[in-house]
Design a binder for these strands. Structure first.
Length: 528
RNA sequence: GUCCUGGUAGCUCAGCUGGAUAGAGCACAGGAUUCCUAAUCCUGAGGCCGCGGGUUCGAAUCCCGCCUGGGACACCA
């Protein structure tokens, strides 16, 4: 809708126009403060300019009225236009909100170390990434979902070591000296038990077996993570192994050297990342010849940029923010444009239950499992709440609130609207498609307003995707449900003179709720 | 100390490419059901938009300084 209005206005003005929501919805559907900016140019009062423009726009069919008030120009869309659009949308549910963006995007997210099950912090990035991909794909972007598996390095060794030590202590009943850092949690003991079945207890007798345990456990953890993700309806297109990437390390290192990106100092190899904005240079190869974690990321991004994509989006935990500068510096050294890489940071999640705070730490072992929360409140509620706040702000929520069956639980509230719509149709003995060709005219103001709001979904999802602010979608669905409930309470549908028209209106509301939720990976309930 | 982020109603937050009286939800108080799902709705109260300065016809929004919460500052991932 907005696009139609913009192109109509552009036809007359030939200037980019800002369209916004009028302060008061009674004023109209859209408004523009364009007269204020033109005032400077033409040295004329914005009020006069607005009056003149309003007269010009008035003759356009898509507007019912165009009014200039105090320099603002307010537009009301015509019923014919709204009806036509609604009819099309209802008959083309799959296409509703679709667009034809033409960009190939590589979206990397989750990428949690395969050293344990996913915790609630990972879930946030997972859900945001998944929904970005769902919405982006709907808008026409070609999106590949990728998981970078850190299957090399110290953390994986620690995983094996942790299993080894637990096995030694709990299965062999030997005394164990615990290092400062190791993985805790029951799953380590479970793995140790399973390992003793697979390999025999002897596996815990000698430290030289640790790599074997590491390798075995890592694969198990990857499977576990995939299962955790599957349970919230998230699937990836690719899993990229860090270990595999190291095959290309000599080549990448060589390229870096040729481009003057690295130097040797203290028997180590350093990246001159300060040259491109990093705080200090970073070690990429230690004195014993082992590459650092950064090396893996450099190879990974080198390979990424060699692939055929227009844009790269990484979703990282906010604790990685210090990494941005060095990775971008490396990309630049490799001869690519780092602006094509965009990093979305997700902030911490604090979980409450009955007002009690939980502190999470994967390494400490007392972290909250994503799977536990899913079991507790369901994947739909988890998805909704994680999407309802901007990625880079702290998210705090109480799981008990999401179990409540009233309006304090947004997912419940929205589903209730959808179920109500279905129920009204059922009571009326009609199917959605029965009313699609009913002509909407002479609707009351409330109905017209609700119709307009229900047709806003396409611009909401586009805005949400472009700004990477998915809470715009959840906010929209909440307000659409609210407008619907309000209307429902004030206007009787069944048996009224307007029955079919209002049913069509309800059908449009249901459409947006259903499509909106589907893009969030949530199925709208038809009955409650 | 440096770098990110945030500071708006009791709580959680939206608004931030400057614009029309600062919004929503929750919580709180009152009210609505012979009638399509009251799992809902309506009404009410509640605000130096962290503080101070600046730019502007106009600042919650932009700039500078300060106060303050959180995070990051590895040869760990």
């Amino acid at each position: 809708m907005k696009k139609r209005v913009l192109s109509t206005l552009y036809k007359h003005l030939k200037k980019p126009i800002v369209l916004e929501k009028p302060k008061d919805k009674k004023l109209g559907h859209f408004a523009t403060p364009i007269a204020f900016s033109l005032a400077k140019e033409f040295k004329k009062s914005p009020v006069l300019i607005a009056d003149e423009l309003a007269k010009i726009f008035k003759d356009e069919d898509i507007f019912e009225s165009v009014q200039a008030i105090k320099g603002f120009i307010n537009f009301k869309l015509s019923e014919d236009f709204l009806d036509e659009y609604a009819t099309w949308a209802l008959k083309n549910e799959e296409k509703f909100g679709q667009d034809s963006k033409d960009e190939k995007i590589l979206l990397e997210f989750v990428s949690a170390n395969p050293t344990g099950p996913l915790h609630i912090g990972h879930a946030r990035g997972a859900i945001i990434g998944d929904v970005l991909s769902r919405i982006g794909t709907h808008l026409g972007y070609k999106i590949t979902k990728e998981y970078y598996v850190n299957d090399a390095g110290n953390q994986i060794y620690l995983l094996g070591l942790s299993i080894f030590l637990v096995g030694k202590e709990k299965i062999l009943k030997e005394d164990v000296k615990w290092p400062d850092e190791y993985y805790r949690g029951e799953y380590i003991l479970d793995l140790a038990k399973e390992a003793s079945e697979v390999f025999g207890k002897e596996i815990f007798t000698d430290k030289s077996f640790v790599p074997k345990l590491s390798d075995w456990a890592k694969d198990k953890m990857i499977e576990l993570i995939k299962k955790d993700l599957k349970n919230v309806d998230i699937e990836f297109d690719n899993f990229v192994s860090e270990k595999e990437l190291y095959k290309n390390w000599p080549k990448v290192l060589n390229t870096l050297e040729e481009n003057g990106a690295i130097y040797k100092k203290d028997d180590k190899i350093w990246l001159k990342s300060t040259k491109f904005g990093d705080e200090k240079d970073r070690v990429v190869v230690r004195e014993d010849g082992r590459p650092t974690y950064l090396a893996g990321d450099i190879i990974y991004h080198y390979e990424k940029f060699r692939r055929d994509y227009d844009r790269f989006i990484n979703i990282w935990g906010a604790d990685h923010h210090g990494y941005i500068a060095r990775v971008k510096a490396a990309i630049k050294f490799l001869g690519f444009n780092p602006d094509r890489l965009e990093i979305i940071l997700t902030q911490m999640v604090s979980l409450l239950k009955g007002g009690e705070p939980y502190k999470m730490s994967k390494r400490a072992g007392n972290f909250i499992l994503m799977s536990d929360v899913v079991e507790d409140i369901g994947k739909d509620a988890l998805r909704f709440i994680f999407l309802s706040k901007k990625a880079d702000t702290h998210l705090e929520f109480d799981v008990d609130l999401l179990k409540k069956e009233d309006s304090s639980n947004p997912i419940y509230y929205i589903n209730y609207a959808h179920a109500r719509i279905n129920s009204v149709f059922e009571k009326a003995g009609k199917k959605f498609e029965d009313v699609w060709d009913v002509k909407l005219k002479d609707l009351n103001e409330d109905a017209k307003n609700l119709l307009f709001i229900s047709l806003l979904l396409p611009e909401i999802i586009e805005d949400a995707f472009e700004k990477r602010e998915l809470q715009k979608v959840t906010d929209y669905l909440k307000s659409l449900a609210s407008e619907f409930h309000k209307f429902y309470n004030e206007h009787k549908v069944i048996g009224s003179n307007e029955e079919d028209k209002l049913l069509k209106l309800f059908s449009a509301v249901g459409l947006s709720i259903r499509v909106g939720l589907r893009l969030l990976g949530i199925e709208a309930k038809r009955r409650m």
